[in-house]
Design a protein around this nucleic acid. Sequence first.
RNA 1: CGGGGCGUAGCGCAGUCUGGUAGCGCAUCUGCUUUGGGAGCAGAGGGUCGCCAGUUCAAAUCUGGCCGCCCCGACCA
Length: 440
Amino acid sequence: MRLSVFFMPTLKETPSEAQIVSHRLMLRAGMIRQSSAGIYSWLPLGFRVLKKVEQIVREEQDRSGAQELLMPTVQPAELWRESGRYEVYGKEMLRIVDRHDRELLYGPTNEELITDIVRAYVKSYRDLPKNLYHIQWKFRDEVRPRFGVMRGREFLMKDNYSFDVDAKGAKHSYNKMFVAYLRTFARMGLKAIPMRADTGPIGGDLSHEFIILADTGESEVYCDVAWFDADMARLDVDFEQDLEPLVQQWLSKYAATVEKHDPDRCPVPPERLRKARGIEVGHIFYFGTKYSKPMNALVAGPNGESITPEMGSYGIGVSRLVGAIIEASHDENGIIWPDSVAPFDVGLVNLRAGDARCDAVSSDIYNRLRFAGKQVLYDDRGESAGAKFATMDLIGLPWQLVVGPRGLKAGKVELKRRRSGEREELSIDAALDRLAAPAP
RNA sequence: CGGGGCGUAGCGCAGUCUGGUAGCGCAUCUGCUUUGGGAGCAGAGGGUCGCCAGUUCAAAUCUGGCCGCCCCGACCA
């Protein structure tokens, strides 16, 4: 993409409403635009990141054996009356009346809808287990939306729902998501710590929140110092094996949200315990028959008896993750995208747009990189060098490839790694080879 | 919902107290000169001062009502 035509309205100054760094940087980089409180448009740069985050979530869900479907944003009130949540949910749920005076709602979550689907078709214990998910926009009419996409009213969420014949099966489904979540966040370069969590109004007795430590986080948490240098490397596991030992191994390092932390019963000695703040990016629940029972979602058992499936639900805040990644990865000059979610792989900077040689070389590099499968943002504008570098640093692409007249005299270009700031003078071919290689 | 703040050009702000032709910086447009870390000069365009009433010869400015946004708290799969 040529920057001269790309719709990326960057700002030199920080809009006054933005309080935290991720919100400020998303506005300055032209990633989002607020439409009303807690509701945003995703502009091209931001949308590219959102789609990459979504795709990683999708791939790891699929890898775990979950199946993707898509449920609507608007749901009938009657399903929520069946579960009893229509009255309970309160003003946070956006309620709508259609032209026939039928009561609808904009879905804040989908337990009722998925349970309705499953009960319609799943009639035998042999059809279980099932784990179905979708990635869909949700609306929760938060009392006080804030922090940009971190606490919006409309937000993109991956939510899935497991149905098992018994508690043992449900625990396995839970563990599969636990491992899938560790993999998902690790791929985004995040350290998301699984913490014992309150189950809240969703009910149930087993729940973990995946939390990224950050001073701007809204959750108060306690954890073992061991987490601070824990390696969150990806786990290559067979999801069908017994995952309980692995999960327990991860849970052996203490971490809990403030609601679940009991100072008198904490297993971690005080000198090893840290109080911190964090951003919740995922939450998994096992809640048994809380929905299957009132909604009468029954399957036949081996002896013809009725079995009420054991359920769990598992959420990842996809749009929130975009902000959370920035909170976790930035410097004073701007965003530093992890390679896996960067909106482009390479920023190509033509320092002297209009100069025949610089234009020709830049254009050639641009094409060669694109044919090699790289996503390239080519700054072909006639701006000053300082403005170009500032823009590139702000939007935080993993690599910057700089073409300028001074370097070209020696046949060299400069390759800069955004994360480390390391710069190298290389021949054009060497620079292209370096970019073709897997990231360090 | 309680407390506080703000609303003036795309962004950041001054002007409001003390009523008298709507300003500054950045951004945008034109021209020339520039270009290795947010360039210079010259010129130009852009605002029903959130909305509605009221007071006044005259309202961005005073009064009342409404709307929106932000912050603290309560709230929060």
